[in-house]
Design a protein around this nucleic acid. Structure first.
Length: 296
DNA sequence: CCTTGAACCTGGGCGC
DNA sequence: TGCGCCCAGGTTCAAG
């Protein structure tokens, strides 16, 4: 699921319930996900009030009023859902139907909110996600954050920056953009999409988008714009709902209808006047979708 | 430094 | 119905 726009959407969905709430209890239903939960994790969170939610790259950050921050990553299959205490009817087939999903509920935030008790539940079948806790003031020094590139929305990402990072790189531009040290938060879907919009082949060496004097070529300017636009559009659309991603309010996002190339192998390129077939190749062990006619 | 490939883990889809 | 294989939004580590 989750690239930057999806994590941003999750943050916005959770904020109304979590911000200002007290963590009455943090329930860990197993000892680890991608790596073990930190020592005394539940104890460190218990009793704290949640000050605010934020996001850095694909990490969701939960600031507590005791100076600690919970650092959550959704991996490939992580999701949150909100349950408010109402009627709890677990009888019969209804409960049976839910049990399959619930077996991957790994972390439960038992919250006291002004509106009453609520639970925020983290579910992750593949367990590539992670959860950690650390003093807020130390976050920037953690391995996960220390080397992150700029966010793809805002002023920090522009063609001159990309040129400085791509200079002399022989690596395919597709893989360079997936590198979180270059741009933070991009993933497989939105890299494919941005390259299609910029009409750049994913196979191009990153350095070929830079002039001999280290300045961005015109196409790199287009790429920087495409990255910002694709991410901004996806956030505005509420993240994608590829496969089973469900937003915290239970509704589905709809940006998937805007994919131009991702997961469209064999279908016609959507570029005006182009009827070539979208191709799938493998780069760095991951699928790349592109139009070999439009993207040079 | 660089790049590539495998590993982590479960579930869905498809061919047989 | 089931088995085996391939695929999936990400990150990290070892090996060349």
């Amino acid at each position: 699921m989750p690239e930057l726009p999806e994590v941003e959407t999750v943050k916005r969905g959770l904020a109304p319930v979590m911000e200002g709430a007290v963590v009455a209890r943090l329930e860990l239903r197993r000892g680890d996900m991608r790596f073990p939960f930190p020592v005394d994790f539940a104890m460190k969170a218990a009793g704290a009030r949640i000050v605010s939610l934020s996001r850095r790259a694909k990490y969701l950050l939960i600031d507590l009023d005791n100076g600690l921050t919970i650092i959550s990553h959704l991996g490939m299959s992580g999701s949150f859902r909100i349950e408010k205490d109402q009627h709890e009817d677990l009888s019969g087939s209804f409960h049976h139907a839910r049990s399959k999903n619930e077996k991957h509920d790994h972390v439960v935030f038992h919250l006291q909110t002004p509106e009453g008790p609520a639970r925020v539940i983290y579910n992750d079948p593949r367990r590539f996600g992670s959860m950690d806790i650390a003093p807020r003031t130390t976050l920037h020094g953690l391995p996960a954050f220390r080397d992150l590139g700029p966010e793809p929305v805002g002023n920090s990402l522009d063609a001159a920056y990309l040129a400085s990072r791509f200079l002399a790189k022989t690596q395919p531009v597709k893989l360079a953009l997936l590198d979180q040290k270059v741009v933070a938060g991009l993933g497989n879907i939105y890299v494919c999409e941005a390259l299609w919009h910029a009409r750049i082949s994913p196979l191009r060496p990153a350095g070929s988008l830079v002039t001999k004097t280290g300045r961005p070529k015109k196409e790199l300017v287009l790429l920087a714009d495409a990255i910002r636009d694709v991410i901004a559009d996806a956030i505005a659309a509420g993240g994608s709902s590829l496969r089973d991603h469900i937003q915290t309010d239970g509704s589905l996002g709809y940006f998937q209808h805007s994919f131009r190339v991702y997961d469209r192998e064999g279908a016609a390129c959507l570029s005006p006047g182009c009827s070539a077939t979208v191709r799938r190749i493998v780069q760095g062990g991951r699928s790349t979708f592109y139009c070999a006619r439009c993207q040079k």
